[in-house]
Amino acid sequence: MNLFRTLRLSGSIGLILVIFWLAVALAGPALAPHPLGEIVDYDVFLPMSSTYPMGTDYLGRDVLSRILYGARFTITIGAAAAIFAGILGTALGIFAAVSSRMVDETLSRFMDALSAIPGKILALVMIAALGSSVALLIMIIGVSYTPGCYRIARSLAVNLNQMDFVQVARARGEGRFYLARVEIFPNMIHPMLTDVGLRFVWAVLLLSSLSFIGLGMQPPDADLGSLVRENISGLAEGAPAVLMPAVAIALLTIGVNLLIDSLRGQAKTATGEV
């Protein structure tokens, strides 16, 4: 019983973190003590202090303000990409499930091929070809995760499609669009939302990695990953400007992960009392 509470605890920590980051995404720039890009001190890589709660960066800008601005990019791009993948994957998954075997197999083969390209690699190839504006990043990250969403959505939809209630509707003479929209889709909403939540975590991690290696967000805009990159030279001095943005990302992704895990309910215990 005691353990039950720990799980709940981790879930509520997750919830608090998620609410916090939502607030930052919405109101971050308004809360920032300094406007974007303002150089506040000639000393670079200052440690934490009461004037600069997270120190200063390589140009002497306030790190806290930079994080508050950067988080907005990270969260919106991550969320937009996850939603993009979720919608596209679900739509294609249902479509494949209710279509003829030919269509289904062609689409699934193609998606298999896409998912055989590890996410980061696919993203790198697309960035090389297309560039990396905000809109493109959303699209690129979204496309990288679409095969995964598709696979889950399709298997859900195929299972639902076999269910007796869909067979009944089919024998009633209903069209495919009705089957997909009314009989199948409503039963997929819940699991797909969970999936999109998890993909948001991966999207944030992917975006941050891309920015960190300099191929994601391009200056002058900076998301949390870019902040780590631009300040990496301060690592030798142990400047908070390097660690703090990375910690911010971790707090965001950990929060979402904990929340989703506890929403999905506690793990099954298998062998009973043994």
């Binding site: 007796d164 209630f165 009944v168 024998a171």
Partner: peptide
């Protein structure tokens, strides 16, 4: 379609939850 209707064994899976 209307003239022939089907009722399945497993009532749980025959109704959309």
């Amino acid at each position: 379609f209307r003239r022939i209707q089907i009722v399945f064994q497993n009532a749980d899976t025959a109704l959309n939850p």
